[in-house]
Every structure is written in C-alpha cells, then in structure tokens.
C-alpha cells in the first residue's frame, strides 16, 4: 500500500513551530469561546424568561395562597414585582439589575438569590465532584480490564453490570440504595447534608453513588470499546513485537483511546448536573437541584433564571475544558489549531 496521505508527507523537517504561536492560538480559541458563551447565555436567559412566563400558574396566587384577596392588593403586588410592565421591559429590567450584580430576591422566602445560592452551592458541587471522581476512577480501569480480557468471564461480568447500571433510572437506584443502606443496613444517613466537611461527605456518599452508577456504566462501555479498538491497532502489535511490557502498552493504548472517552466525560458531567434535581430530592439534600425544582414550581423567576444561567455556564466551562484537553492529548489537534 502506498502512502495514503499526500499533503502531510511533504512535512519535511521544518523547524518546530514556536510555543508562542500555540499559546496564541489557544488564547484565540478561549477568547472565541467566551464570546460564544456570552451569546449562548443571553439566548438562554430569554428562553427561560419566556418559559417561566408561558408556563401554567400565577405568581400572585403563589404569594397570596388560596385565601381571597382584594384587587387592590393584587395590583400592589403586581406593581411590586414589575408584572404590570410589558414583557420586554420586565426582561430588560431584570437584565439591567443582573448585570449590575443585583441578582434579585426569591419571592418564595424573600432572601436574596446570592444568599440562597451560596448556602446551597457547596452541597451540589461536592455531590457532583464526588460522583464524577468515583465514576471516572472506577469506570476507566474497569473498561480497560474488560478490554484486555475481551470475551472473557470478567469482561462479560463487567459488560452485563454496566448494562444494568445504564438502564436503571437514578431515582430508582437512589431508592434501592436508601432501602439497603439506610433501612436494612443502617450504615448511612437517609437525608440531610450534615455539618462540617467530613460529616457532609459522609452524608453525600449514597447520593454520589446514585449519580455515579448511571454515568459510570456509560464510561465503562465507552472505555471498553475504545480500548478494544486501540489494542487491535498496529502500534500495539508493533510494541508487543519489540518486547515492550504490558503496562507500557496499556498506557500507550489508553492515551490514544481516551480522547473519545473524554468527550463523553464532558457530556456526563453536564448530564450529572441535571440529575442532581432527582438525587437531591430523593435524599432530601439542600442543594441547588432542590432549590431549582421548588423555584420552578413557585415561578420564582429570579432564582430560576440565575440557576439556569449558572448551570449553563458550568456546561460551557466543561466543554471548553474538554476541548483544551484534546489539545493536551492529541498532537494532531495542536497542528489543526495552528492552521
């Protein structure tokens, strides 16, 4: 077989491209992403605003409850929350205040959004971090083991369990874990976030496990597929053919096979942030997920808007991190970048 590429071949020993140009290209990439993210967040804020507006329910009814109120009070409340203005003006007012750093107040419990957020963000971030770390640290090695023993008993065991993990919905997994480890074997607390870091981590173990099982199963399958493919490649054969040890070969194959897995890890992290709503509800954790859920029900616009933008920003950051990790992992992406 003659060389399939034509253009790449002409790359003789040109002097190595200076690091500054790569750094510059990365800076440009990040700058463009930030611009993109701002546009994206603006669009999301409009959509969330409209969704809150058209969704059923009435904010005044939510405030006043079921007792009868006079039209004067209703009018006063409407004026207080700016509901008598046009839709566009309502949005622009919110936007102006938001950009000034005034994120508004929760209608439901009359505290500022920033206070609500800072009280609850820790639990959710810790929950996601624990779950993600557990999923990656367990799943990637399991996927590698399955790929090395492809077709063997261990591979089948891992594959079957990953299918189960993948198909079980997280609230069901959460309930099962609650039954087993809080009721029959009361090792873990069933609700609350605990006090202090150690106690909080202890409280978060079951919720994090719930989150980790589904996404971990997904990572196992992906790692396995990628590694099976890499282990069949020529460079692995050639490495074996010159007596290179198994550990070195696995590391090499993982380095090449991990790129598609990393893409998925980005998706997984985004998915996880969404799943916190279910898991926090199951384990009654005072996190952002529960806050989001209750504020959507209450049409608590300022809170919904802020949380949505926060989650969106996290996802944008994760995606950017994934793209930057490509550059670290694949020389070909670095060449692409310089073009």
């Amino acid at each position: 077989m003659a060389p399939l590429t034509d253009v790449m071949d002409s790359a003789d020993l040109a002097p190595p491209v200076r690091a500054t140009s790569t750094a510059g290209a990365i800076a440009r990439l990040i700058a463009w992403r930030v611009v993109g993210a701002i546009v994206l967040l603006a669009v999301i804020s409009v959509l969330v605003f409209l969704l809150t507006y058209i969704s059923p329910g009435n904010i005044i009814k939510n405030i006043t409850g079921i007792r009868p109120v006079s039209p004067r009070i209703v009018a006063a409340l409407r004026a207080q929350y700016g509901l008598n203005q046009s839709l566009v003006m309502q949005y622009l007012h919110w936007l102006g205040r938001f950009l000034e750093g005034n994120w508004g107040r929760s209608i439901e419990d009359q505290t500022s959004v920033s206070q609500l957020f800072s009280e609850r963000v820790g639990v959710t971030l810790l929950l996601c971090g624990l779950a993600f770390a557990a999923a990656v640290l367990v799943s990637v090695p399991l996927g590698v083991i399955a790929a090395v023993r492809v077709g063997g008993v261990l591979d089948r065991l891992i594959s079957v369990s990953s299918v189960i993990g993948l198909s079980a919905p997280s609230f069901a997994v959460g309930l099962i874990l609650l039954y087993v480890f809080c009721y029959y074997l009361p090792i873990f607390p069933s609700s609350g976030a605990g006090q202090g870091l150690a106690d909080t981590v202890y409280h978060l173990i079951l919720p994090a496990a719930t989150l980790a099982i589904g996404v971990g199963a997904y990572i196992v399958r992906l790692t396995r597929t990628a590694m099976v493919r890499e282990l069949q490649s020529d460079y692995v054969s050639f490495a074996r053919a010159r007596g290179i040890g198994t550990r070195r070969i696995l590391a090499t194959a993982l380095r090449n096979g991990i790129i598609p897995v990393i893409t998925t890890m980005g998706l997984v992290l985004s998915f996880m942030v969404g799943s916190t709503i279910l898991v926090e509800t199951t384990f009654t954790l005072p996190g952002l997920g529960m806050l989001l859920q209750s504020s959507v029900e209450y049409k608590d616009f300022a809170v919904v808007q802020f949380l949505t933008l926060f989650f969106a920003a996290i996802i944008v950051l994760v995606t950017l991190a994934v793209d930057l990790s490509y550059l670290a992992l694949s020389p070909e992406w670095r060449w692409q970048l310089r073009k």
């Binding site: 077989m1 060389p3 399939l4 590429t5 490649s233 020529d234 460079y235 054969s237 050639f238 490495a239 053919a241 010159r242 007596g243 090499t252 380095r255 090449n256 992992l329 694949s330 020389p331 070909e332």
Partner: peptide, 16 residues
Amino acid sequence: VTLLLQDPFTSLSPTH
C-alpha cells in the same frame, strides 16, 4: 525476535 510491520503510518503511536 522483533517483527517490523508493513504500514509505517499505523505502526507508531500517533500521540507519542
């Protein structure tokens, strides 16, 4: 013994 393969485009790891 060492075996040298046919295709130099695939027999080396692209990321090392």
